[in-house]
C-alpha cells in the first residue's frame, strides 16, 4: 500500500466530503435508521451496492490514469495529459450506474472538489487532462485518477472508494443521532473483510489494454460496459427526497 492512500482516504482531506451523508440524513429523517442496528444494515447495503460500483469505477479510472502518466507513454506523455475520450466514456459509465439525478449531482460535486484539491496537492498533466475532458467528474472517477497520480495501484483506489462509501454516512449518523462514536467505529471495523474483498474484485475488473493494437479505439474500451452495476433503489429514493426537503444539514 502506498502511503498516499492514507491521505486520500482521510476524512480530514479538505475536499468537501464532510458535508455529504450519502443518504444517511434522509434515512434518519424518515425513521429508516434510528440506532446502531439500523445503521449496520444501512452501511452494509450501501457498501455492497453503491460502494461496490464506486470501487470498480475507481479501479478502472486508476488503471486508465496509469496508462496516461508521463512515464507510461513513449514520448513522455502528451502535454495536456490526453485521454479525453477515455475520461468521457468512463464518466458516462458512472452516469449509467447512477439512476438518481440528485446522486449524480452529489457525486459530481464531490468529484469536482476532490479534483480541485488534488491538482494542488499532486499536480499532474493527467489530472489536467481529466479536468479538461470532464470538469465535474463522478467522485470515483476523480478518486481513481488522483490515486494513480499519487502513486497508488487500482486496488488501493478501489479500497479508498469503498471505504469512502461507508465512512461518510457513518460519521453523519453519529452527528445526527448522537450515537456512540466508538460503537460506530466498531461497526466500521466489522466491514473490513468486505472492504478488502470488494477492493480485490474491483481491481480484477476489466480494464483497458494499455498497449492496444494500432488504430483500435483504445480510449473508450467496451470492457467498461461489463463493470458492476448494482442498484440500490432505496438510496436513489432517499437522495431524491433529500434534495426536495426544506430543511437539511448535509448536501446529500
Amino acid at each position: 500500500m502506498n502511503a498516499s492512500l492514507l491521505l486520500l482516504a482521510d476524512s480530514r482531506l479538505p475536499a468537501g466530503g464532510h458535508a455529504h451523508s450519502g443518504g444517511a440524513e434522509r434515512a434518519v429523517a424518515t425513521g429508516a435508521v434510528r440506532d446502531e442496528h439500523d445503521l449496520a444494515a444501512f452501511l452494509h447495503g450501501r457498501l455492497t451496492t453503491t460502494g461496490r460500483v464506486a470501487a470498480s469505477l475507481a479501479a478502472a479510472s486508476c488503471a486508465l490514469a496509469t496508462t496516461l502518466l508521463p512515464d507510461a507513454t513513449p514520448a513522455g506523455g502528451p502535454a495536456s495529459g490526453g485521454g479525453e475520450a477515455g475520461w468521457t466514456a468512463l464518466d458516462a459509465e458512472a452516469d449509467a450506474r447512477t439512476a438518481s439525478p440528485a446522486q449524480r449531482a452529489a457525486a459530481r460535486t464531490q468529484g469536482r472538489l476532490l479534483l480541485r484539491v488534488a491538482r494542488r496537492i499532486w499536480p499532474s498533466p493527467v489530472l489536467d487532462g481529466l479536468a479538461l475532458a470532464v470538469p465535474s467528474p463522478h467522485h470515483p472517477v476523480a478518486l481513481g485518477a488522483v490515486a494513480a497520480v499519487a502513486g497508488c495501484p487500482p486496488r488501493d483506489a478501489a479500497l479508498a472508494a469503498a471505504y469512502h462509501s461507508v465512512t461518510g454516512p457513518a460519521t453523519a449518523a453519529v452527528r445526527l443521532l448522537g450515537l456512540d462514536p466508538v460503537a460506530v467505529h466498531r461497526l466500521l471495523a466489522t466491514l473490513s473483510d468486505t472492504l478488502d474483498a470488494i477492493a480485490g474484485t474491483a481491481a480484477a475488473s476489466p480494464h483497458p489494454d494499455p498497449t492496444p493494437p494500432e488504430g483500435s479505439p483504445s480510449e473508450a474500451p467496451d470492457v467498461w460496459a461489463a463493470l458492476p452495476a448494482h442498484a440500490a433503489p432505496a438510496l436513489d429514493l432517499l437522495a431524491e427526497q433529500h434534495v426536495r426537503a426544506t430543511t437539511r444539514l448535509f448536501v446529500s
Binding site: H18, A19, L113, A172, R248, V251
Partner: peptide
C-alpha cells in the same frame, strides 16, 4: 452552501465547497 452540521469546518478546515 450546506455544511453538514459543522459550520466552522466549512470555513476553516475544509473550505472546498465555499471556494467552489
Amino acid at each position: 452552501v450546506e455544511t453538514g452540521c459543522c459550520p466552522h469546518t466549512a470555513i476553516r478546515d475544509d473550505i472546498a465547497a465555499n471556494i467552489d
